[in-house]
Nucleic acid binder design. Structure first.
Length: 860
RNA sequence: GCCCGGGUGGCGGAAUUGGUAUACGCGUUCGACUUAAAAUCGAAUCUCGAAAGAGGUAUGGGUUCGACUCCCAUCCUGGGCACCA
């Protein structure tokens, strides 16, 4: 056997696999399908470092095993070419985004090609391809033309809603949003087109509205909440780190909140890390509580407050309202200090704007001069404007008591009287505020006893009782709120999918007809952000003349459905052929970074659920199983980045060690989901292993008989590797194979069939050199398409086992004995062993514990 | 502040219905080969101890014949959320 020349071998087999179309995926297969997908990468142009392929290698190892196990495997790759990363690269390098995408795509493909992936490049997609974004626009129109029917709990065409409005006698359609619309059919018919549009806009799942948004002047665009991060200097953009401020703008939105419950409920059955599920759960932020209504004294007005923590509601002594609350001016009407209070409120709002979300901790307030009648009693409670109250959570008005730390300090500052009810956790508080009035206490148990008798109940039960109590008395009603907000679906940028809508002279919105899709992004000279909040498209005469929407779609549009396109990427009649979707269904195993927990992974679940309602997708969830690869850090332990000069280029590693070594090492480094520093020392170990296997070939012979002991290890290894790959425990799979090769190394001669079984299970990790050996051993077929070995449970059984002899849990001796020997026999032999006997002399054995084939423990 | 993870040799890490802690790899030390070095091969490598033995999985306690594993408390650490009522 020649010396191991990785460059030659890898190039050779990559060419042969491509020529023989070894990884071509068919849509007309009788085999069972397995769809394994890597998160679509965006083309930022920075080039890959060794951390990028880690996830791809993991999914590739699984894909290769599934292929060998006889599945029809779909394992595609493409680019998310639209959006900020590509555009930012273009701006920095002063080239057109289209050109930037082309260059970066080629670099990316070249870097990947040498690692030896199983991608079927015939299925490549790119989100900026008109043949692709035609369907992104098409889906947008479907979403735009739908509303969420809470009764059927699914999206329905907006035409169905209009029919309901038109149907005579119908009044009050159940609203998706807070707007409780109520009108008769004649009311509806008498409305102008514009008025009808305004009503429907409150139901559409894609809608136009105004809102305070995260505006990034440097990027010249609006950012979603998850694209903004906090820094010591205030909020900055995730991409680029530029300052972000609040700005009120016209926007397109996606009504993701309509799907809040389904997004939350669906999480339970997903095979995702609990960590990611937890993040999504917190993001959705479902909170069940009560809404109390209180009459304002001296006005014909009711204030509603939402609270999820109503256990202490009998102790409430004051109300607060958000300084920017829409009802505040009305509440102040007729009061002498009206303008003064409004001015103070405005100051509070302005002050808060200067802080990042969550950074503003000042306590400020002003008394409105109004009182409400306590809904649970008769006394009057003062209403204050408080800097901490948020207009957009709950009702924007809070009912306050001493039990909330923040309410407590507010009351302290402004000398507002307080009461407490004793709750199990509040004994300390009761001591702290002993000067205040204490109501409804049970000093010994801390459980509420008045005005309803709850003696002997635990906290959860008394919470339930409290709900019953206050709702039956009419003090409050049950209500659920969510922290999640509707997603902004617009960017004031050039490089994105055009939104296929236009406004006419009367301000009526029309759709670009389905037939004329794709609505192509026009070529422009200047694609730079205008900085004013207007999209560069506004400056294109032919575009604005038609009244076309000048905002483009955000970066997450294409990535919210691309996985369906891979099923049938060339289809011209729809996003994919019905049969193809029926066959591939959804992604069996999704692999990507954990940083997309609240962005991509939430948005694509939302779109998929919509497409399910619409009858295109056939499963409720797009990604039933998800694995997140950990980062690979620089040698210095810092994140790999040009800035630190610690970037390791995979091409360099492939050149000096080979793709097989790179692949094996990245899988062996540690747990797949862990973040680890790259190590130039450790990679040697993986290379040595490959060379040792390479040399083993010299001892392989068809004439050599199977060694029974080696066979046991071999079959145990096959079982372990099969299981470990399925569980993404690649590091232990590699370690098991290292143990096997060490055992083989001890033998003078090896049975060829046994050795070939080893090659097969090693092939997914290091496909090139194993293919070369397979070929050299005289096989004509391709190893990568060979059948995955089945382990034989009969061959996994050791003839002899090593049993540890313990005295009082200390190992004192060992014995080799036939498997499944009788306990009595083992104990008899053990007692006679000198190393055991000396510990037992003169002592009484109180107990003998025997664990079959593992240990025997004498308790003396 | 609240909600999730995690803490095992010099290093990456193995080990879970509770059953021989430190597999596998790296590094280090010694030896072989070599004029020499690299590479390769062999041996050793948790701590104390000459040995017998003793101790040891962040810390303290508990359950158990037996705990890295289960329970309680504490400390450290990574991540997520946050004036969310």
């Amino acid at each position: 056997m020649k010396d191991y020349n990785h460059l030659e071998i890898e190039k050779k087999w990559q060419a042969i696999w491509t020529k023989k179309k070894a990884y071509k995926t068919s849509n007309n297969s009788k085999k069972k399908k397995y769809y394994i997908l890597d998160m679509i990468p965006y083309l930022s142009g920075a080039g890959l470092h060794v951390g990028h392929p880690k996830g791809y290698i993991g999914s590739d190892v699984l894909a290769r095993m599934k292929l060998m196990q006889g599945f029809n495997v779909l394992h595609p790759m493409g680019y998310d070419a639209f959006g900020l990363p590509a555009e930012q690269y273009a701006l920095e390098h002063n080239i057109h985004p289209r050109k930037a995408v082309e260059i970066n795509g080629k670099t990316f493909e070249k870097q990947l090609s040498i690692i030896g992936f199983t991608y079927d490049w015939d299925r490549k997609i790119s989100t900026d391809d008109p043949n692709f974004y035609r369907w992104t626009q098409w889906i947008f129109l479907k979403i735009y033309n739908s509303w969420y029917n809470k009764k059927t709990n699914k999206a329905e065409p907006i035409t169905e809603l209009i029919k309901k409005f038109e149907k005579s006698g119908s009044t009050g359609i159940l609203a998706v949003t807070e707007n409780n619309q109520s009108f008769t059919s004649s009311d509806w018919k008498s409305k102008t087109s514009k008025e009808k549009q305004d009503v429907l806009m409150k139901y559409r799942l894609a809608y136009e509205g105004f809102s305070e948004v995260n505006w990034c002047p440097q990027l010249g665009t609006v950012l979603a909440n998850d694209e903004v991060i906090d820094s010591p200097k205030g909020p900055v953009s995730e991409r680029g780190g530029f300052p972000v401020v609040k700005k009120n703008m016209r926007q397109w939105f996606m009504r993701i909140t309509a799907y809040a419950d389904r997004l939350l409920d669906g999480l339970e059955d997903l095979d995702w890390s609990s960590h990611i599920k937890e993040i999504q759960k917190n993001w959705i932020g479902k909170s069940e509580g009560l809404i109390f209504s209180a009459k304002v004294k001296g006005l014909n007005m009711v204030l509603e407050t939402f609270t999820a923590h109503f256990e202490a509601c009998y102790a409430d002594t004051f109300y607060v309202i958000a300084p920017d609350h829409v009802l505040l001016p009305e509440l102040l009407d007729g009061l002498p200090d009206r303008d003064l209070v409004l001015k103070k409120a405005k100051e509070m709002v302005d002050r808060r704007k200067g802080f990042a979300e969550g950074e503003y901790k000042e306590i400020d307030g002003v008394f409105t001069g109004r009182y409400v009648i306590n809904p649970m009693g008769n006394e009057d409670l003062p209403v204050w404007v408080a800097s901490f109250a948020l207009a957009n959570y709950g009702t924007g008005i809070v009912k306050c008591s001493a039990h909330d730390e923040r309410d407590f300090s507010f009351a302290k500052k402004f000398n507002i009287p307080l009461k407490v009810t004793m709750l199990p956790t509040d004994k300390e508080l009761a001591r702290k505020v002993q000067n205040f009035e204490i109501c409804f206490t049970d000093a010994s148990t801390g459980i509420l006893i008045e005005p309803h008798n709850f003696i002997g109940r635990n906290a959860a039960d008394s919470r339930l009782d409290m709900v019953k109590h206050v709702t039956s008395k009419g003090f409050a009603r049950i209500h659920t709120t969510y922290k999640m907000r509707d997603a902004i679906f617009a960017r004031q940028r050039y490089w994105g999918e055009p939104i296929p809508l236009y406004h006419d002279k009367n301000g009526i919105i029309h759709e670009v007809s389905e037939k004329s899709l794709p609505l192509k992004l026009p070529d422009v000279k200047s694609y730079k952000p205008t900085g004013t909040g207007e999209s560069p498209l506004a400056g294109v005469a032919s575009w604005s003349k038609k009244g076309l929407e000048t905002n483009t779609m955000p970066g997450w549009a294409g990535s919210s459905w691309y996985f369906l396109r891979y099923m049938d990427p060339q289809n011209k009649k729809g996003i994919a052929d019905k049969k193809a979707i029926k066959y591939w269904k959804n992604v069996d195993m999704y692999v990507g970074g954990a940083e997309h927990a609240t962005g991509h992974l939430l948005y694509s679940r939302f779109w998929h659920k919509f497409l399910k309602d619409y009858g295109i997708a056939i499963t409720e969830e797009p990604f039933p199983a998800l694995r997140n690869q950990g980062l690979i850090m620089g040698i210095d332990g810092r994140k790999m980045s040009k800035r630190w000069g610690n970037v390791v280029n995979p091409t360099d590693v492939v050149n000096s060690y080979g793709a097989d070594t790179l692949r094996l090492y990245e899988m062996f480094m540690g747990p797949f989901e862990g973040s680890l520093p790259w190590s130039t020392d450790n990679i040697i170990g993986s290379r040595r292993f490959i060379e040792r296997v390479w040399k083993l070939v010299e001892r392989v012979s068809k004439k050599t008989k199977s060694d029974p002991k080696l066979e046991v290890i071999l079959h145990k290894t096959i079982a372990k590797v099969t299981e470990d790959i399925q569980n993404f425990a690649f590091n232990t799979a590699v370690s098991a194979m290292m143990i096997l090769s060490n055992e083989m190394d001890k033998k003078e001669s090896l049975n060829q069939r046994d050795f070939e079984l080893f090659l097969k299970i090693l092939s997914p990790f290091s496909p090139h050199f194993t293919e070369e050996i397979w070929n050299k051993l005289g096989n004509k077929s391709l190893l990568v398409l060979e059948k995955w070995p089945k382990f034989d449970p009969k061959k996994m059984v050791d003839a002899e086992v090593k049993i540890a002899i313990l005295i009082n849990n200390k190992v004192r001796a060992e014995m080799l004995i036939p498997k499944d020997e009788k306990e009595a026999e083992i104990v008899r032999i053990a007692k006679e062993m000198p190393d055991v006997n000396k510990w037992l002399i003169g002592k009484e054995v109180k107990k003998v514990i025997y664990i079959p084939n593992r240990l025997v423990n004498f308790v003396v």
